[in-house]
Amino acid sequence: MDKTELPWNNPVVEANASAPAARLGQYAQPPLRNFGSIDPYNRISREAKDMIPPPFEYQAPTSVSEALALLGKNPEAKVLAGGQSLIPLMRFRLASPAMLVDLNRIGDLAYIKEGEGWLRIGAMTRESDLDQSDLIAKKYPLLADTTHVVADPLVRNLSTLGGNLAHADPANDHPATMIAYRAQIVATGPKGERTIPASEFFKGPFETALAPNELLTEIRIPAPGKGSGGAYVKMERKVGDFATAAVAVQVSLAKDGTLERVGIALTNVGLVPIQASAAEKALTGKKPDDAVLRQAADLAAKAAKPESDARGSEEYKRALVKTLTVRALRKAVARAQGG
């Protein structure tokens, strides 16, 4: 059909065509690396409406070097990992990358290996593979807890650990867990690899320490020694929801039963995951009795920077951090004492 055949195609309302567009960013396409303008707590911009992604170029490299070359040549490219956050954003046209570099065909980015004091996880390892790993279930309860409550079981079949971290949504679950673990994040760029401590990786909402021409390729978690344990306790409104607040705790006990090492980090109570350093410090060297744990939880709550939104008031979330910290600490300590 030719559009000129249609009587309605004569311009209908053409008043004041030169006026600056007063529209909101209804169909605006914010650059991918700058999500600061979107309220991350509302998840989807209220004005967005369009369920079909805009056009883009698609490339599926089969090696990391090929992927890096593509990223180097195309600064507007965006990396596609599991796609479970990116594709919905594209469907709402809140993200409109000119090119997607799909990592799913790079075979050697999905693995779970332990050795030389580290658990090494390939960036493209899917949540469901973490969830089903016996090694993780046995030795890494904090990671097992976390991966079990990311989104829902079907999303976990595609979403990846690397994607969860690189997307740097303050509501994502793994960032706090990696901070509590003192994990290292491996970035591979044109000049080779560098490692970034998890605590320095998250720069802002949807912003990381990765350079545009770098890929997150591996996550390294220090292998816990004897007497270690961890827990992730998340408050969510339903399965699949982002956390109202969540707390990641990793501890190891000295032979005398005192806390030797303590990692505590908080999810979705700030623009980035928050390391509760004062709480960690207050616990180190102490016997983990309930009074001590409560005191530390107080400090964790003080470290939180929540904002009031549909998930609850600032006051509620702060109180929640305290409750969840105590519960996570109790669970982590019990696991450390048991193992």
Binding site: A21, R23, Q26, Y27, D50, I52, P54, P55, R93
Partner: peptide, 15 residues
């Protein structure tokens, strides 16, 4: 539906 959606994205409205 893809072209219709692209069309919706391209309509400009001043409010």
């Amino acid at each position: 539906r893809y072209t219709a959606a692209d069309g919706v994205a391209a309509v400009e409205v001043d409010y």
